[in-house]
Design a protein around this nucleic acid. Structure first.
Lengths: 355, 355
DNA sequence: CGGCCATATGTTAGCGCTATCATTGAGAAT
DNA sequence: ATTCTCAATGATAGCGCTAACATATGGCCG
């Protein structure tokens, strides 16, 4: 709460800023080609610029009449505060850097939405960057983000390289790693145990009497953790070693996957999109039933709990992971520096008709 | 040797030599709690700060030996440029503000990805904001974005309020409205004709002999344009007026929609998620066939061309709209100020098994 | 009635960087 | 040799704002 009050002592100011331009006349603004500054407003209102600054940030410190005069001047000039200058002067940017592998068609969009919904009302902007699952690009993006001096960095996973880790460690700002529970986190963590997710799926398949397991999906760190849990548990249960098929990141690639998995009767897909693609392949091969999971020649379980998964037929069994809660929690971890820094948001095995 | 004699004259050189001789230890870097500045690097390298600045921005202007010395100092200090200060000094933030209704589960994620992929390699950061389909929040977010002095603003749709429009018009930066083709754009446009998309769907339904049309989805401006085209064309073809059902923004809400549309034999959903939800409802009601579109008691067409749509059964007919191309084009429009400022990226009616 | 406090405003000095104009020396051109 | 040019570097003055510290006012108290 301390950090919060420091960040944005005056959450109203945004609303206020919007209102400012409302009475602008065309002539008055278009005559001045450059954006009006604090001191331009100050001159017009007959006060010093610090008073204008206070009207924007700490209006309760300014006498009502003065405030009204300043607000009038701001409206007339169409003043929009320059947060770049403000950030330099106050050493506070009110922004957080967010790094995700990708934002399109992805389970991470929920996380971005969750944290954004938490941060935006506090006047804290989200600077978004994508690594595209590329370590070099990730490092570049981290450096780019840090250059903008964000109040914190929230990222999916951990930096892929030592350089990236070092960069973050030296940044001396809150760092939140998400979607994982790294053993040696840089700072804070909001995620779940991908290994245990894999174990849970394998356990379920074993309990259902499935014999020949396979894992399909990408080979990113989180997918690999899931695979390891899945694999280890299957072995521990005396099954033959599960197969692993590494696929492109689009779901369509997984349509043909079943051809490469002869004899397999249970598949854990690294995410719901892959699972749905795989099911499309099963359907083509006549291996998909409308009945319950027990009737499926090949059981399929995904991860992410896309809304669509429960709408299709057969409905998709999945590991539900609360992407938005991860984002929301990550945002909270950037705001409060004390307290527990490692939050396991868990996951749930949601069983429907596919597996 | 030249360089040596030059910097030996510098009174700082003694300190420089001292710093050089003591090898940098872990303590030395991490002990300084504050981030090193340009001039700290300059001092260490025995040059003026402007030279360090040049090494960062215009390295070809600096002699190779000097450059190497400066780069070494930067590495040793772990220097990370402060773009906030740079932006203030140069009046260039190298950032663009991006405003979308929502980023989660949405067709706009593709657009953000497309523009981000185009901008990030140019050193241009994306500041992301969500309006959540709320006009007041949109205005607040626009003001917040403009406060950060982005090089341009890219938004989905047009500002909902006059205040928002005025704010953008006065910002004197490129503004790109997307996912629409507004009649009076603020500046640039990258989108498609939502009205014509509605017409195209209605035309198809009419050609297929469908009699009772309905439109389901949100009542945002774009959805409403689609509805209008759909509605107008149906009427023009002599059909009875289509029904319109306004739904919550999540797909699950549309599952029950068919109960409210008795007698309807063709449905245009404002997006694929709604379409898939609606189909789930049809399935429950026994009104969904595995056969081709002509066999469907109720034809369904969505919009967005989600990858999943082509994987489910029956596969989803849809209006494909190239969300990533919209993003990519929007990014280009922010970079090039000349040329055509109104780009219609079109759409395609993709017919599959649902309608 | 002087001292004291709270309120309202102002002055000053930067934040860390870059634009703009010097300055310097070396080689080319005259 | 003298000028000119160019490449390499530096000195200076801000960018628009805010932190930190003044400086008025006007009660209010003992």
């Amino acid at each position: 709460m301390l950090a919060l009050s420091l960040w944005m002592r005056n959450p109203e100011s945004c609303r206020f800023m919007t209102a400012m331009s409302s009475q602008l006349t065309e002539t008055e603004t278009s005559s001045s080609q450059i954006a009006p500054t604090l001191s331009a407003v100050a001159k017009r209102a007959g006060v010093s610029s610090i008073t204008v600054s206070r009207v924007v940030r700490l209006p309760e410190l300014v006498a009502p009449e003065t405030r009204a005069r300043v607000e009038k001047a701001m409206r007339e000039l169409g003043y929009v505060p320059n947060l770049v200058a403000g950030a330099l002067a106050s050493a506070k940017t009110n922004s957080v850097g967010v790094l995700v592998p990708t934002i399109a068609n992805s389970i991470f969009a929920d996380t971005v939405q969750g944290l954004s919904d938490k941060l935006e009302p506090l006047g804290c902007s989200v600077i978004l960057a994508q690594s595209r699952y590329d370590a070099a690009r990730e490092d570049r993006m981290l450096a780019a983000l840090l250059s903008r001096r964000p109040e914190a960095i929230i990222m999916v996973g951990s930096p892929a390289t030592e350089d990236g880790k070092r960069l973050l460690r030296h940044a001396r700002i809150p760092i939140v790693e998400t979607w994982e529970l790294p053993i040696d986190p840089i700072d804070a963590v909001a995620g779940f145990d991908n290994y245990q997710a894999g174990v849970a799926v394998a356990r379920h398949f074993v309990a259902e009497g499935r014999q020949h397991l396979a894992f399909i999906g990408g080979d990113d760190p989180r997918g690999t953790r899931r695979w390891l849990g899945f694999h280890d548990h299957a072995l521990a249960c005396g099954l033959s070693p599960p197969r692993r098929l590494i696929l492109e990141r689009n779901a369509s690639g997984s349509v043909a996957a079943h051809a490469n998995l002869p004899g397999v009767d249970a598949v854990f897909a690294a995410n719901d999109a892959h699972a749905i693609g795989f099911m499309a392949g099963l359907r083509k091969a006549g291996l998909l039933r409308d009945g319950p999971a027990s009737a499926q020649p090949v059981a399929v379980i995904g991860l992410g709990d896309l809304e669509m998964g429960r709408l299709i037929a057969p409905s998709l069994s999945t590991i539900s992971v609360h992407g938005d809660a991860i984002g929301c929690t990550a945002a909270t971890l950037t705001l409060e520096r004390g307290g527990e820094r490692r939050i396991d948001l868990g996951f749930e095995l949601v069983l429907r008709d596919s597996g």
